[in-house]
Amino acid sequence: MVRRIAGLARIQVAEEKLPGLARELSAILGFVEQLSEVDTQGVHPYTSPVETQIKARADEVTDGGYPDDILANAPEKDDGYFAVPKVVE
């Protein structure tokens, strides 16, 4: 399980750390398991403390045009692009 989740989260976990991590995770999951005691039948999920109408923007170009800032912290860049190890599709 830990290996699969770590793969999904793209986190390299050293082989020897897997058992310990599995123990910790199952302890945490055991702890949160108490939620199942709560009767939540028909309770609307709470996704944000804000309950007002979503606020929106007008369709105006107000941003962009600073490629140097966008690329300023890039670990690797080339010719105005971000560069990454070759992706094979």
């Binding site: 949160v32 939620l35 199942s36 709560v38 939540t40 999920p45």
Partner: peptide, 12 residues
């Protein structure tokens, strides 16, 4: 079982 449940409990 986990996320949705937690959001419901959060409302309570």
């Amino acid at each position: 079982a986990y996320y949705l449940k937690a959001l419901q409990v959060r409302r309570l």
